[in-house]
Design a binder for these strands. Structure first.
Lengths: 224, 224
DNA sequence: CAATTATTTAACGTATACATTAAAATATTC
DNA sequence: GAATATTTTAATGTATACGTTAAATAATTG
């Protein structure tokens, strides 16, 4: 069995490639792009590109504007608030569900290791490392919640705020308080305290939302 | 200015037509359909049908299964639980946001009239009328919340459980308790009590979820 | 010259031909 | 005759030609 990349359809590769270009900032928020341009850039015909744009539109990463090209989504502070409201609510539900599931310590090992990694990263002043562990923690939290609809929505919304998070990562103070929250959340889930898990995470996310929006406003980032 | 229907693209009409066929049960849950069949049925080529199926897949109404046709989504009791968990959480958040907005009585008039219509329908033993007013109430509640992301998600999920609700409408007891909940929620929003609004609606939806799932199980409806 | 109308352009929307490939059917081998 | 290999089939995936139409440009008119 070889390790070659499985040859996916052009359509799927277009989705992946466009996502990557958007996240890398090569298709910047607010910019417009004709189907034919994108098709040429990706080395395929318009057909799979059109299909990809429909998928990405449904994920909120771009907007199809007939005869004006697709516009890469640019989020205002208000959009950010909306998205974080939903993320806060659904992740808090996931935290509550995870606590109710009464997982064993072993089941929670990945959550635990993510908290340890975050703490180590803060010690080492490694923001990228912290961000990566933080993402792993949140992913695992939602996975433990066990509701696949929540997983899908949260994943979409995280993609949408990805650039904003990356931009503010180096503007914010080192996330020491954040680590305490994660540890407290871990404990609440481990002891099966659904109410506490929900409340701890709700406050955590609400604070993260306020900080992100304040940072964007302070730095005059109207749309990202 | 004429009142003729604006001539939409085939692609958009395919989305509308397929949605209608799914809701009408002409494309029953679990059934498979080739692109070419659907294209013929809708009197257009495969191209716009393919685009429509991508959109509907992103809305959870069907699943594209290469070489096996598109499969109309069939929900298990567990799927229903997942969807209702999300609906409960997001509508409750919307209720809380609506209360925080401190709307005037005038702003809340549609919410009020929907409650009155529900009460009248229950008096008149008119389940369809009640269901229609109930839907209007929930739509308006979410609209008043003011978060468009919530509106989109809730609308999608309501579409997904539409058939199940229609099926159980005549199995359930007349929704008298439900009307009390709606009235209490209206009062909480009107007096700006966000916490109460959230809790009242959360309990309301949770009870609705439990009833729906019990009804589906009692009647042996494995997948709808 | 401003406003309107006509024309042109270019991008999208659609149909269609064809390439690709998973699945089914058939043939082959032991 | 079961297991495997081959061929065939059929549905999808893709490219492309072309029709349609919104937007831009040019022409006209008062």
């Amino acid at each position: 069995m070889s390790v070659e990349a499985k040859s996916k359809s052009h359509s799927i590769r277009a989705v992946d490639a466009l996502r990557a270009l958007i996240f890398a900032g090569e298709l910047p928020p607010g910019s417009d792009h004709l189907e034919s341009e994108l098709a040429e850039k990706l080395g395929m015909s318009r057909t799979p590109v059109r299909e990809a744009t429909l998928v990405l539109e449904s994920q909120g990463l771009l907007e199809v504007r007939p005869r004006k090209g697709v516009r890469i989504s640019a989020l205002s502070a208000d959009d950010m608030r909306e998205i974080y409201e939903v993320l806060t609510e659904l992740e808090s539900l996931a935290a509550s569900l995870a606590a109710e599931a009464h997982y064993s310590e072993q089941d929670l090992s990945r959550l635990k290791s993510a908290t340890l990694e975050m703490e180590a990263s803060v010690e080492a002043d490694d923001r990228e490392g912290w961000a990566s562990a933080d993402a792993a923690f949140h992913d695992e939290l939602v996975r433990l919640g066990g509701n696949r609809r929540i997983q899908t929505i949260v994943s979409n919304f995280n993609d949408q705020v990805r650039r904003a998070r990356a931009m503010t990562l180096h503007m914010r103070p080192m996330p020491r308080k954040s680590n305490e929250d994660h540890r407290a959340l871990y404990e609440a889930i481990a002891r099966g305290d659904a109410k506490a898990a929900r409340e701890i995470h709700w406050r955590h996310r609400t604070e993260a939302k306020d900080m992100l929006i304040n940072l964007l406003n302070q730095h005059g980032l109207r749309r990202v």
